[in-house]
Amino acid sequence: MNIKDLPEESLFTPGHTACAGCPAPAIVRNMMKIFGKDTIVYTPANCLLVFSGTYPYLAWRVPYLHEAFENTAACISGVARAYRKKGKKTLVVGIAGDGGTYDIGIQALSGAAERNEDVIYVCYDNEAYMNTGIQRSGATPYGAATTTTPAGRKIAGKLEHKKDMAEIMRAHEVPYVATLSISHPKDFLEKVEKAKETEGFRYLHVLSPCPTGWRFDPAKSIEIARKAVDSGMWTLYEAEYGEITNIYKPKKKIPVEEYIKGQGRFRHFTPEMIAELQKWVDRKWKRLYGELPES
């Protein structure tokens, strides 16, 4: 599967009101091209809910449901069971943000994964509560400035590291877990396709750099996603039933210093903070690849 294999027809229309340069609409549009018409979509409260439609207008061309914030996995469970009872095959997809996944939604998510519900759960991760105006979440990386972890005189940015949500999901030993980046289209599309073909609980986690919240030039969204992968801030891999089956290793690992450049949320970084973030990356790298990166 590659870009040129994707159908022209879109199930997510233009006219949506995402910020200029937000990659989330491209993420969902391209995913939907693979999921196809026979899909039911749920979104909790997040930017996607708001920019994909303000009543009576809607960008979705598939059945679409919203209930609340913290319950994406429970809602898609309900839809999937209703369809199983009918004996009809339909793809049921929930698309939540990082706040709705890492924080308020983790209970329902863990429950649905443990029950191995036949659904696809997508976390599009922009590393803070962007819909409410850039507050820190469990996905916010160390040191990043948000409106609740401002770069203040005493405390500069978030004090804690990012939670490893994909690893938490891998520990549920569900049929499929994958991390994706829009900057790597072939890898992205193959994982979406694999998710579609797999049965049972599938978890897709995609990084979605936010020009407004991360404070960078909107033209750079894809470039920053690419740097996230190349620096090890974001790791692309697949896991089946808890076992890592495929992991992407950047050809040349770049230092985090290069990744954080051009992002306003890291502008206040001191050399010590850069070193702390690099240490986190190296720890994660060693855990996932079994060895320290070559320097």
């Binding site: 609340a68 319950n71 429970a74 809602c75 898609i76 469970s77 309900g78 369809y83 329902a108 429950g111």
Partner: peptide, 20 residues
């Protein structure tokens, strides 16, 4: 669906009912 909370119970019922 043996959910993990009452909140999820009602969420799932709403979704299933919305699916007919």
């Amino acid at each position: 669906i043996m959910v993990e909370s009452e909140h999820s119970a009602m969420s799932a019922c709403i979704a299933a009912q919305a699916a007919g």
